[in-house]
Nucleic acid binder design. Structure first.
Length: 152
DNA sequence: GCCAACGTTGGC
DNA sequence: GCCAACGTTGGC
């Protein structure tokens, strides 16, 4: 089993939005970065556990846990001219962009903030805390996963 | 709102 | 293929 971290802006789609969806499931659309796309396409498997990270907000940090329930398939929002993430170069016959479906698992009892994560030597290799990192999806090792959960 | 870091685009 | 210009991300 693999572990991941995925970012979302709570003003757009936060963990409570996921929790309130039918079946507490949603597709993770709108990713338009090749590295992140490749991870969803090639490496994310059903049952993988994922940290839900709130970005671009008052208290950026990890707020909860979700789980992959459907593996990579075409992101239809790339073909919709009215969608914010429309990509005119994307071809439905050969989709450029991929998404997965995820399901709500739990909300942490507190937000484990980016500030706190940055202070932990154990997490020095976590892509999230490395300078200038902008990936919206990143792998987390089991050791990192366990360490972060123990902070709660 | 600012701005550093980074990815993408497009001229050459 | 290089690289300057531009757009986006996201912390602060």
């Amino acid at each position: 089993m693999n572990y991941w971290l995925m970012k979302s802006e709570p003003d757009t789609f936060g963990i409570n939005d996921l929790k309130n969806r039918p079946n507490q499931c949603e597709h993770w659309d709108g990713v338009r970065n090749y590295q992140a796309r490749n991870m969803m396409r090639d490496d994310m498997k059903i049952g993988d556990q994922v940290f839900f990270y709130h970005s671009n907000c008052d208290l950026p940090g990890i707020v909860g846990i979700m789980e992959v329930v459907r593996e990579g398939y075409p992101d239809h929002t790339a073909f919709d001219p009215n969608d914010k993430h429309f990509d005119p170069k994307s071809n439905p016959a050969k989709p450029t962009w991929i998404m997965v479906d995820i399901k709500y698992v739990s909300t942490l009892t507190r937000t484990i903030s980016l500030t706190e994560l940055k202070q932990k030597p154990e997490l020095a290799d976590l892509a999230l805390v490395r300078r200038g990192n902008r990936l919206s999806i990143m792998p987390v090792t089991q050791a990192q996963w366990d360490f972060i959960l123990a902070l709660e």
